[in-house]
Amino acid sequence: MNREKIEKTLFILPTCLFLLAISIFPFIYSVYLSAFQAKLTKMHRKFFIGWENYQILLFEDDVFLTAIQNTFTIAFSSITIEIILGFIMAKIFFEIRHLKISNAIRTISILPIMLTPLCVGLVFLYILNPTLGIFSYIVETFFGLEPIAYLGQPIPAKISIICINSWQWTPFMMILLLAGLMTVPNEQYEAAKIDGANWYHVMTKIEIPSILGFMLLGIVLRLIECIRLFDIIYVTTRGGPGIATEVMAYFTYRTEFRSFQIGTGSASAVIILIISIIVTTIAVTLLRRVERDADFS
């Protein structure tokens, strides 16, 4: 090995060691533990059971299977809402970008992203309280409807979680889409105007194709975030009522830190990781294809 190669190796060695210590080793250890029946209070008596934890989780445990289903239901619904509302908001901010106040409004509108999900969950817990919450008051006073337990009934609870999640992350999608809209050349708008295109044509033929890459990037990032969704569930519903809002991350937490079943919890964490990798790979492949198509067009 020549001197230059040794130097290069020495330069990347600390990073490799760092990655090995904080990412790769815990992951490998997690995979190792997932093959055992292990409880935190008696780790010295853990015993090897092979694939059994995976088999139970993927084929027998209806709570975990529901958690996978709920995670994707919440993810897809939230992201769809975020894209629609985010696009509308981005369009509004794009149209008023020349106004001095637009910067201030834009800053205020992204405040939800800056809040920690725990705080967001707590705030909505109070807002949605059936007897003391402002939402119940509004619904009762203005619409004459009896307040219900928004977080205590299966369907309303799921809808509430989707709304809370969307409320917090729509501004994120808005910022991405606004950045995309800013990249659309002004000439295209002028040409469309001369050709007599209406708003719908502008949106579908110019804007959406131009911002598709930004949109996909947002979807990828939000998908990863939604697969890890935990805090809001922890504060508001704890996966309930029943298992209506049980999601994968909360299931893993419960198994690891409430039941202290380290083997099952590790298996669940590994499954989440594999699902994340698959979903991200698909999304990134799509993203690259869109970018390539955009380059050719």
Binding site: G152, Q153, P154, P241, G242, I243, A244, S259
Partner: peptide, 15 residues
């Protein structure tokens, strides 16, 4: 905890 999940399911009409 396991029992509590199932009891709650019965009480909220999930089962």
């Amino acid at each position: 905890e396991t029992l509590g999940i199932e009891v709650n399911k019965a009480l909220t009409g999930e089962a």
